[in-house]
Design a protein around this nucleic acid. Structure first.
Length: 576
RNA sequence: CGGGGCGUAGCGCAGCCUGGUUAGCGCGACUGCUUUGGGAGCAGUAGGUCGCGAGUUCGAAUCUCGCCGCCCCGACCA
């Protein structure tokens, strides 16, 4: 490709909207352009990168016997009513009507479509197991897109679905997909990418892992032990904090005028937040009230609480609801609540501590010396509902947990029979008995992976692409091409490189050297070749690696072979 | 959906408070000449519904009201 012909202007300055490194450089380098909030076009450079990412994914899916298919983006809403998700999913699912007034949706994932496809085609255990996948656009009407390509509304995703006769088969295949994902993320050049156990969320199922590319701008929070043996999403992470009980003292009411928050109460009484109990009232969508309590120095993890209560969401209860069960907002106590009207959940940190300060269910009063076993003898659930804090001991190694941010580039789920049962996707087993198929599903965000790579591999001047997904292997610059035979020499080299299979971006514009170098940095190809009056005269070509590891002047006759060998070595290095 | 910010040329911005000719600047683009190893110089050119719509006024980029769009924080999120 000739740079003079390439569509996608490089920008000297980043658009004001661009905040993260990947957003800035993908914009400045001419890889992507925004069309609307969270909706982007890919320019030729960006498309070349995503095409390479897709090809790597394709190869690894094929390696585990995946069969590529393509399912529709536009789907009738009735299909989503079959699975129950038309009701379960909120405005994130974009609904509209076609010209015949038929309710339609834009698919945000393809469980329904793939089940629809498979249930009429696969009927026997002899056909199981198998996996189909596609690389296709999804649309999610995100409440708030952010960080450029990290969180968007329209995006390309590889989604794969496996179908099994029994859970052993799914378990076995799940591990194979896990391995395939490790290969994929290694091959695309993500340096720090960990798989962590995660919450299954709205997609359901029994087990799931998220593949997290570690990056400061990531939205997800991960807790890891220093040796990496333990790693988990914040929503499932547990800490190994040890609590200590002491001799229970007598309950005692204390006057705490106007002190509602943990900090105010602890300050006023001259104690630490760890000596208090934090109470929060929630309401579930079906109208249940929940009283949740953690020790004052912890935070409640709503995801853990939701999972415990088997509810899709929790909202804060209002003062009216709180007073209706005999509690006082800001001074709430679990003591004396009517357990027929409210579910009481107490974190381990409360159950295993002694003599905490809690509310008195009376304005301006708290109670000292709350002891769970003595003061709440029945009707309360004890569970882990607290969010882990950085520095808490690891439950496995005991070392202080490290908190990291990550970009979720992929995930894998054991779905089980959630969709096959709801949508009647069944097969006949060996004994002629009809049974629902057991499913797994596996996603990778293509654009997000590209952005994650840039987050992990860039310098002040632009991205430093791994060879495997770089838009071109090499960036050839002719400096002063009008002088002597420089232009012809560069053209010859351009042709020779392409003939040996090297993908080359050729800067034939004749810009000043400085300008050409800045553009090359901004585009970020791994190998830079320079042909100039100086090198032509010496019968040489300059070679520089974008990552800064090498800068050489080589004989003209050696350069093509050398470039080829660098490309091959780099690709080999990235292949497990 | 709550809070905040911003919409003026492809990109970055000034002008707005205090209304007043043909709306500026830098970068980028185009033409020519000179340049050519880390964003060159000179000369010239093109490029604007000042987000949209009402209103106030002799006169609106500027003041008022409404709407739209975009970004950030939060809520939310297979």
């Amino acid at each position: 490709m000739r740079l003079s012909q390439l569509i996608g202007q490089r920008l000297h300055e980043a658009p004001r909207d661009a905040q993260t490194a990947s957003h800035v450089f993908l914009m400045r380098g001419g890889f992507v352009r925004p069309l609307s909030t969270g909706i982007y076009s890919l320019l030729p450079l960006g498309r070349r990168v995503t095409a390479r990412v897709e090809q790597i994914i394709r190869e690894e899916m094929d390696r585990i016997r995946g069969q590529e298919i393509l399912m529709p983006l536009v789907q009738p809403q009735e299909l989503w009513e079959e699975s129950g998700r038309a009701q379960a999913i909120g405005p994130e699912l974009l609904r509209f009507r076609d010209r015949n007034d038929k309710p339609m949706v834009l698919a945000m994932t393809h469980e329904e479509a793939v089940v629809h496809l498979v249930r009429s085609d696969v009927t026997s255990y002899r056909q199981l197991p198998f996996m189909v996948y596609q690389i296709q656009i999804k649309y999610r009407d995100e409440a708030r897109p952010r960080a450029g390509l990290i969180r968007v509304r329209e995006f390309t995703m590889k989604d794969a679905y496996s179908f099994h006769a029994d859970t052993e088969s799914l378990d076995e295949f799940y591990l194979r997909v896990h391995e395939a994902y490790e290969r994929i993320f290694r091959r695309v050049g993500l340096r720090e990418c960990v798989s962590i156990e995660s919450d299954t969320g709205m997609i359901g199922g029994s087990m799931s892992h998220e593949f997290m590319a570690l990056a400061e701008c990531g939205e997800d929070v991960i807790f890891m032990s220093p040796d990496g043996r333990y790693k988990a999403n914040r929503d499932v992470a547990v800490s190994g904090v040890a609590f200590r009980k002491t001799e229970p003292r007598t309950l005692e009411k204390v006057h705490t005028p106007g002190r509602k928050t943990i900090e105010e109460v602890a300050d006023f009484l001259g104690i630490t937040p760890a000596e208090t109990g934090k109470a929060v009232f929630y309401a579930t969508p079906d109208g249940r009230l929940v009283f949740a309590m953690v020790r004052g120095d912890f935070e409640i993890n709503e995801t853990k609480l939701c999972n415990l209560l088997r509810t899709p969401e929790l909202t804060f209860a209002n003062d009216e609801q709180i007073r209706a069960v005999g509690a006082e907002p800001g001074y709430a106590s679990p003591i004396g609540l009517d357990s027929t009207q409210i579910t009481v959940v107490v974190d381990r940190s409360v159950a295993e501590s002694s003599n905490l300060v809690v509310g008195a269910n009376e304005p301006d009063y708290h109670q000292k010396n709350f002891n769970f076993e003595r003061d709440l003898p029945a009707g309360a659930t004890v569970a882990d509902i607290a969010t882990v804090r950085p520095g808490d001991p690891c439950p496995v190694t005991g070392e202080p947990l490290i908190m990291k941010h990550g970009i979720e580039v992929g995930n894998i789920f054991k779905l089980g029979t959630k969709y096959s049962e709801a949508m009647n996707c069944r097969f006949l087993d060996r004994n002629g008995r009809s049974r629902p198929m057991i499913m797994g599903c596996y996603g990778i965000g293509v654009g997000r992976t590209m952005a994650a790579v840039v987050e992990q591999a860039h310098d002040d001047f632009g991205p430093v692409w791994p060879m495997s997904i770089a838009p071109f292997h090499a960036h050839l610059i002719a400096i002063n091409p009008g002088k002597g035979s420089v232009g012809e020499e560069a053209e010859k080299l351009y042709t020779e490189l392409r003939e040996t299979g090297v993908e080359v971006l050729y800067d034939d514009r004749g810009e000043k050297a400085g300008a050409a170098f800045f553009d090359a940095d901004l585009i970020g190809c791994p190998i830079r070749l320079i042909v100039s009056p100086r090198t032509v005269k010496a019968g040489q070509v300059e070679l520089k690696l974008r990552n800064g590891s090498r800068r050489d002047v080589l004989p003209r006759g050696d350069i093509v072979a050398e470039v080829r060998s660098i490309v091959e070595a780099e690709l080999a290095r990235l292949t497990p």
